[in-house]
Design a protein around this nucleic acid. Structure first.
Length: 276
DNA sequence: CGCAATGTTCGAAA
DNA sequence: TTTTCGAACATTGC
């Protein structure tokens, strides 16, 4: 469940469940999820730590403890399950056990997710280190504007969809929302990035803000139900205009499914003018 | 059996 | 040297 709105939904849900909890122990049936430390160092640093806040930057979840910070990326299928019974299920790779007997289980069928633990709570410092240092401005950031994107679009011959999926440039959009944003902006996903006009760049920013804000308000998008029960399900899937669709809601033309940068892409070639 | 899947990264090719 | 492209990561479900 991972584009910005889904991660934000997880952040909000988790905050109500685990802020104030203290770690009694940590186990990791699949420690490869942890990237910057050995599991024993990870575990040793977290034991006795209390969660004070949960933040987010782009698609990264940031769990703030008393003296350390956990940065977690869900990639394609990462999920957190809060439990009051100790059973460990299949695909749960890292488990945080709290002193009150409850626990937080990181579940990820494809094992693509990542975790980084920093032994400090200086966010200014952590933000300057990998992986957060690579995160670009979010569409709703006060500093996001046409000049910022234009400077980064300047020399790129890549398809605009591929560029918008690059988190170093603009953070937050993933495969679903980028299709929606380009549809609303009437821009074909294969348009070479550097050929976009200022007006089109402005449209991309406005529409990205609109789409993400609305998706957050609706708790994100839940399409394709993966294994298991408990899952934070959103309602934005009912608002999708092109992604997963077969007919354009504006002109009724048939929506095409193409491949852009290796990703399944939905486009109305009547509303989103193809190149030349 | 083959392919695609809400993501990112790394090596090879251009 | 820099940028682009596609395979790879690991697993499941259609």
């Amino acid at each position: 469940m991972p584009e910005l709105p889904e991660v934000e939904t997880v952040r909000r849900t988790l905050a109500t469940l685990v802020v104030g909890k203290t770690i009694a122990d940590v186990s990791a049936p699949y420690p490869k999820i942890i990237k910057n430390l050995s599991f024993s160092h990870f575990r040793g640093t977290l034991i006795n730590e209390t969660i004070t806040d949960i933040k987010r930057k782009g698609k990264f979840l940031i769990v703030v403890f008393t003296k350390c910070v956990l940065v977690s990326h869900l990639r394609m299928e990462g999920k957190y399950f809060y439990k009051t019974t100790p059973a460990i299920e299949k695909h749960e790779h890292v488990i945080f056990w709290f002193t009150d007997g409850s626990s937080l289980h990181y579940h990820d069928t494809r094992k693509f997710g990542t975790m980084y633990l920093f032994p400090t709570r200086d966010m200014t410092l952590i933000t300057q280190l990998e992986p957060l240092s690579q995160v670009g401005l979010e569409p709703m950031d006060a500093n996001m504007n046409v000049a910022y994107l234009k400077a980064r679009f300047q020399k790129s011959t890549k398809a605009i969809k591929t560029t918008l999926l690059d988190q170093k440039i603009m953070a937050g959009l993933g495969n679903i929302y980028v299709d929606e944003v380009l549809f609303l902006s009437k821009i074909h996903p294969e348009t070479p990035t550097k050929t976009l006009s200022d007006e089109q760049i402005a449209l991309i920013i406005t529409n990205a803000q609109t789409v993400l804000t609305k998706a957050i308000a609706l708790g994100g998008t839940t399409i394709r139900s993966f294994t298991s029960a408990h899952d934070v399900s959103g309602r934005f899937q009912n608002e999708l205009l092109v992604h997963t669709k077969t007919e354009c809601p504006v002109c009724q033309a048939k929506i095409k499914k193409i491949k852009v940068g290796g990703r399944g892409t939905y486009v109305c070639e009547n509303c989103q003018k193809p190149l030349t």
